[in-house]
Design a protein around this nucleic acid. Structure first.
Length: 434
DNA sequence: TGAAATGTTGGGGCG
DNA sequence: ACGCCCCAACATTTC
């Protein structure tokens, strides 16, 4: 008759939840817990929409549990203190959770593991956030891949050998009882946060959108992308469910899910890439870091319409179309010669779907110096990108209504000058360290 | 998951 | 008919 805590973190659902299923199979009492981690919250702005999103999903999750005669316990504070305190209060034998691979989480979970072990309590993680974890798709010689294409080939090969199976965690709830008798959820204000006013994407995605994804995804004016990033980030949809759906429909869409796992694998095996270039020679680049230029990039007033539209979309919605993410990142690093870390931090703050590994990977791809990055001499022409991917200026006009009038600023920098400057600057940096 | 510079080809105008 | 030039259009190379 063992008693367990199931600790929700980035898996805010009861369906197809690997760790929850494991808990229900190994204990007769399973008490679900969620903690608003003040270590994380204190870093954020008061109107950070992601906290609002989590709060909303916690309310939903709590209601779902109530339908299964369980009541989610919600706490605010430091998990390293709260989990052991609850475990003691409830005479818990096991703590189950789903693994989180970010550096902060790994450190936190290691500390908690030691504390619980000293109390005689087991702490067990499950694979839930990815199809294949960091060590499951490796080269023949046992070292990690650093190039996407062969990685994805091996990933798909492995998938064909061990098909995805879903966990009936929802059904398994019927096997267990909880501890809490009533739901109690803090309101957003209790957390010190306020509503953002932003709209959150739906969890549903049409088969048709996935099928058309390859053709439509590059055109930011079209609803070609699924916007499921935030749901994958917080586990309000299951990666297994999504991959099963995408598998027969569109390989290009599936590849995007594989990119996500590729970058998580990279950041685990090469943790220095959180702060430095995958190829360290690129850390020798001398950046301009002009604060006035950075501000105009953030505000979307560079005088390059596609760049400005992208930044304004980000500022207004917490989302930016993927094609435009590449264009804005390229513009900041290569045209303005501003350190990719500044752009990365800005995206981290603004993007609802922010995922550390993907953001780092994407920025290093754009700046050069990443693993499997575009060579530094591939410089996007922001005007040509607009002509190719938003030829009718639909997207531009949506976000930059004054484009084409005298109210719209002149380009902050001339294209061919910037292009020659960045080619020269990178070449110098790379020669220096040879 | 580029773009620009440079090279090649071939059709048409023209003397 | 022929050579020559021009210049799209496409291909290749370079950054």
């Amino acid at each position: 008759m063992s008693k367990a805590i199931f600790w929700h973190r980035r898996d805010l659902r009861i369906e197809d939840n690997a760790g929850l299923f494991k808990a229900c199979m190994n204990a007769s009492t399973v008490q679900p817990v969620f903690i608003f981690d003040t270590q994380i919250l204190q870093e954020l702005d008061k109107n950070d929409a992601r906290v609002e999103f989590i709060h909303r999903e916690i309310e939903r999750l709590s209601k779902e549990y109530a339908e299964h005669h369980l009541h989610l316990r919600v706490e605010i504070g430091n998990p390293i203190e709260i989990i052991p305190a609850l475990a003691k209060e409830w005479h818990i034998d096991h703590v189950f959770t789903n693994r989180d691979y970010e550096p902060y989480a790994l450190q936190r979970d290691k500390t908690l593991y030691d504390i619980l072990q000293s109390m005689g309590i087991s702490f067990t993680g499950a694979k839930d956030h990815v199809i294949f974890e960091k060590n499951e798709v490796m080269k023949g010689d046992g070292t990690p891949y650093t190039v996407f294409t062969p990685y994805s080939r091996k990933w798909k090969e492995r998938l064909s050998q061990e098909p995805i199976s879903l966990h009936d965690s929802k059904g398994a709830l019927n096997r267990v009882q909880g501890i809490e008798k009533t739901p109690k959820i803090p309101c957003l204000a209790d957390l010190g946060f306020e509503p953002s006013g932003l709209h959150f994407p739906a969890t549903e995605v049409e088969d048709l959108l996935i099928s058309k994804y390859s053709d439509q995804r590059n055109f930011p004016a079209k609803p070609g992308t699924s916007k499921l990033g935030i749901h994958l980030r917080f586990g309000t949809i299951s990666i297994r469910t999504l991959a099963l759906k995408a598998l027969p429909l569109n390989e290009t869409y599936l590849n995007e899910l594989i990119w996500r796992e590729f970058y998580q694998m990279i950041i685990y095996h090469f943790p220095y890439t959180v702060t430095g270039a995958f190829r360290p020679a690129y850390d020798a680049v001398t950046w301009e870091d002009n604060p006035e230029h950075f501000k105009r990039w953030c505000d979307g007033t560079t005088g390059y319409p596609l760049v400005d539209a992208g930044m304004r979309e980000l500022n207004a919605t917490g989302f930016m179309h993927n094609r435009v993410r590449m264009v804005t990142a390229s513009f900041l690093t290569k045209h303005l010669l501003i350190d990719w870390r500044l752009g990365e931090a800005y995206f981290a703050k603004k993007l609802l779907d922010f995922e550390l590994a993907s953001n780092i990977g994407g920025w290093q791809w754009a700046a050069g110096g990443g693993c499997d990055a575009a060579p530094y001499f591939r410089v996007f022409n922001p005007t040509a990108q607009q002509e190719k991917f938003d030829p009718k200026l639909e997207y531009v006009k949506r976000w930059v209504p004054e484009y084409g009038t005298s109210a719209y600023p002149q380009p902050i920098i001339e294209h061919s000058f910037a292009r020659n400057r960045v080619l020269d600057r990178f070449k110098t940096a790379l020669n220096k360290t040879e």
